[in-house]
Structures are given as C-alpha cells and as structure tokens.
C-alpha cells in the first residue's frame, strides 16, 4: 500500500469541501433559436422534414443526424403542440436523492405530424393509471411570460 509512516490520528482533517461554480449560458443554436422564437408567439411547434430519410425531425435541426444531409430552411413546417404519450414513469425522487412532496409523471411524448418526441411532465395525479398512448396537449405560459426556452411549456394536459 501507500507510504510507510501513516496518519493514525482520527481527529485530523479528512475532507475538503468545495463546489464547482459553473453557470452556463447555452445558445439555442440556429435551429433552436428559430423554434423558440416561434414558440414565444405561437401555441405550436416547428419541425424539419428530411427528404432523404423521409422523416419529419422534431425538435427541428439544421441537418439530419442519420444521413448527415443539410435541411434547407424553406422546408421547415408548422406542427401542432399535441402528441401521444409513448412512455411514462412516475418519479418520486428528486435530484438530491430525497423523496419529493408529490410524484411527477414524466413522459416521452410523440409529437403529432412528426417522427420526433419531447420529454414533458403530464398534469395529472392518478398514480396507478396507465398513461401510454393517451393524447396530450402542451399548455404554455401566457405570451407575455414566455422567454424562449422549453420552460415556456408548463406541462401537458390529457385531452382524450
């Protein structure tokens, strides 16, 4: 093992506390900027069709990661802010590993008219229910409060 004359005093210091101060400012990127500017003024989304892969990509991007082709700006389309729950989980633990006051229903939602999906929180409180395949609709903040981030979507309401 390590050195020969060892520390044997159990009252000696053992830990050094510190934090990593790291605040980040992320540009949404050219595609993200376009989407979030649209969300600020509309209750809907934009998507990008890749003609080569025959897929409508959502969230929109400048290029398709599958075929690596650029997607021209004139091909962007508008899609509604509705979707179908592909997967859900009921989360009870917060990031600190403690129990939250109330569970949250986290879902991966297939966005209508696209081949893409978005993570979201479902606004419901039935912990035993199966939410898979339910239709949901994004509920946005009021237009004045929107800041151009994903947090402009408050949660998703079940519509069927």
């Amino acid at each position: 093992m390590t050195f020969i004359e060892k520390q044997t005093d159990p009252t000696a210091p053992t830990h050094w506390r510190g934090n990593m101060q790291a605040d980040y400012f992320y540009s949404n990127g050219v595609a993200g900027d376009k989407l979030f500017k649209y969300i600020k003024n509309n209750d809907g989304f934009l998507a990008t069709p890749c003609k080569k892969c025959n897929k409508v990509l959502f969230p929109p991007r400048m290029y398709c990661e599958n075929c690596f082709e650029e997607i021209p700006e004139d091909q962007w389309i508008q899609v509604p802010a509705t979707g179908t729950v592909r997967l859900f989980t009921i989360a009870t633990i917060n990031a600190h590993g403690e129990k939250m006051k109330e569970p949250k229903i986290m879902a991966l939602i297939n966005i209508d008219e696209t081949d893409g999906a978005l993570l979201g929180v479902i606004n419901a409180k039935e912990w035993e229910k199966d939410y898979t395949d339910l239709k949901v609709k994004a509920i946005f903040k009021s237009k004045e409060e929107r800041e151009g981030t994903l947090k402009d979507i408050l949660y998703w309401n079940i519509i069927s």
Binding site: L87, A91, I93, N94, A95, M100, K101, K104, A107
Partner: peptide
C-alpha cells in the same frame, strides 16, 4: 427539491 432525479429516464426505458 422538486427537480426530478435524472434516473427517471431509466424508468421510461
């Protein structure tokens, strides 16, 4: 404390 633990993604999967 209402920030969900990232393992929720494993729950989905």
């Amino acid at each position: 404390t209402e920030r969900v633990h990232p393992y929720f993604l494993a729950g989905l999967e």
